[in-house]
Amino acid sequence: MTATVENNTPKAVETARSAGRFLFIAAVVLICAWVLVPIYLLMVNTLSSPQEVTGFPKTGIPSFDFSSIQFFISFAGVAKALWNSVLVAVLTMILSIGIGAPAGYALSRFDFPGKEAFRMLVVMTRAFPLPLLALPLAVLFIRSGLDDTAIGLAIVHTVLAIPFAVLITFSLFSGIPLELEEAAWTLGCNRWQAFQKVVLPLVLPGIAASAVFAFTISWNEVFAAAVLTIENRTLPAFLVQNLNVSPLHLKFAGGAAMVIPALIFIFAVRKYLFAMWGIANR
């Protein structure tokens, strides 16, 4: 009797465990499918001819016909919109890191009166619907000649990206022990040399990741881009303006043009995503 019990219990536990294991794997597969299948379907449409895109029913298998893509690329305004998107995103990247990183460094290395006030200012930006900034800035930009320019839009996107740039660089710099800098000072460096020779090489990958993050924020932003540009539309602004007049295959190719770089960006910064948010929460 006792022997059977002893034999049965581990078996029951094992069954329960393998059932749990199965459920766990099923959940992982299901969520992966939930994320990936819609992207796959968009790619199917992008890699099909315009006729197939409007055709019915669909097979769900791409025909690898590039005429939709060709149509998209040669469509009036698309090339320019793509170029504008890249230009604005690069400017945003430079501005937000150039302005945000020094602030992040100051927050991580110094204690000074007013530090909390600055932190509040940065945190506050996250509690405001930032794309709305485009409305009053449109007026300001017209007055200062920044309307419909890449730099004007990049400024608004920088407001969006700066809180992230500050908090991410803050956590990056906080991860470099102050002792390393102090060691460099005692070894003959002034502040700038120590930063350049010791801190910079160590944070560079992280800075690059947060720069890519800023790029992505700008690359994806729709509302402010649509409000602030007329001639020099970025890709999302261009697409959203033409949504109700453009044919389906143009939308899908445009969607793919936005998604593919994003996939690459996330891949590039994947290691840093969590480190960034871990500290940024505090």
Binding site: T216, W219, E221, P236, L248, F252, V259, A262
Partner: peptide
């Protein structure tokens, strides 16, 4: 894979789901 959508804009997401929900 889980964090892929993080990099997508809402416009792109709209277009992705349009491919599923539109008439054809």
């Amino acid at each position: 894979i889980f964090s892929i959508p993080l990099g997508l804009s809402d416009l792109a997401a709209g277009i992705v789901w349009l491919a599923i929900f539109e008439q054809s």
